[in-house]
């Protein structure tokens, strides 16, 4: 910067809320958002694309307002929400315990490693028909699908986290004669927390996929059902509305996990 530019902060907005950099991000972000939305609407209005395929922002807005004000959408949200919360909760509980055990006990890791590798490579949605055979078409089946879809990433992340604790910290703890539990609490757990949270974030995404796929294949309620039904009725705007609901859910959950992540990452230097 020249010395002329050194005086710049004084000329900044008195509130100092927006530096140049974030505002550039914001400006271009908004431009990108608005341009795509505008192009979509225009293409639809000018009949460049089939409305039945791409719908349009205004049609989606109308569909959203209609189904919210009539209350049609709420039971679907409640059903999907129940499946999701139960399945993900169960996956968290089991996944964290399993991941910690595998990470801590070398032999258990060796024992399960081939199965984990195989499951990693399997598109587990292929198991949905089997799950339906076993659990029927009720709530249980969907909970199991969400569970299976999300548990794997959680387990693997926790496992990686346990091993991520640098050996030198274990040595430090050991040199102070820390007990096994103390070592676990003061070294293993803090070192693996970021990994756990990454696993949770990935798991929330997978869980949503699980809900949708399960409801697509067998259901009479839920957002996945709402999307599938409206698809077969060629109500494309409603299909997009359902998808956007899921997208918002994904964003909100992702952001939530990120807030927790930041809370647990205070000791980590900020990378700029």
């Amino acid at each position: 910067m020249t010395l002329g530019s050194l005086a710049r902060p004084a000329n900044r907005s008195p509130l100092g809320l927006l530096g140049w950099r974030p505002s550039e991000r914001l400006v271009f972000g908004l431009i990108g958002f608005v341009v795509v939305l505008g192009a979509w609407e225009a293409a639809s209005q000018l009949k460049l694309v089939k409305k039945v395929v791409l719908s349009s922002p205004s049609l989606i807005w109308d569909a959203a307002i209609t189904d919210i004000s009539s209350g049609v959408i709420f039971p679907h949200i409640a059903v999907s929400g129940t499946e999701y919360v139960l399945g993900l909760g169960l996956a968290l509980l089991v996944g964290v315990l399993l991941g910690l055990s595998i990470g801590l006990f070398r032999r258990l890791n060796y024992l399960l490693d081939p199965w984990l590798s195989a499951l990693y490579a399997t598109p587990t949605v292929a198991l949905v028909p089997l799950i339906i055979i076993i659990f029927g078409i009720g709530l249980e089946a969907k909970v199991v699908v969400v569970f299976i879809e999300s548990i794997f990433v959680i387990t693997v992340s926790v496992m990686a986290g346990v091993r991520a604790a640098d050996a030198v910290y274990h040595d430090v703890a050991q040199s102070f004669r820390a007990s096994g539990w103390m070592r676990f609490r003061t070294v293993t757990l803090p070192a693996s927390t970021p990994y756990l949270l990454t696993g949770v974030r990935l798991g929330t995404g997978r869980g949503i996929v699980g809900v949708v796929v399960a409801e697509f294949l067998t259901s009479n309620s839920g957002i996945g059902f709402y999307i599938g039904l409206n698809g077969s009725l060629l109500q494309t705007a409603r299909v997009y509305f359902g998808i956007i609901l899921l997208g918002i859910l994904g964003l909100v959950l992702g952001e939530l996990v990120r807030v927790v992540e930041r809370r647990f990452e205070r000791w980590r230097p900020q990378i700029n």
């Binding site: 910067m1 010395l3 050194l6 005086a7 902060p9 900044r12 530096g19 950099r21 700029n272």
Partner: peptide, 15 residues
């Protein structure tokens, strides 16, 4: 030769 920059975190001028 003289050189200064604006610290991005505190937005203070550092010579």
């Amino acid at each position: 030769v003289r050189f200064g920059y604006v610290d991005p975190t505190s937005s203070e001028v550092l010579l």
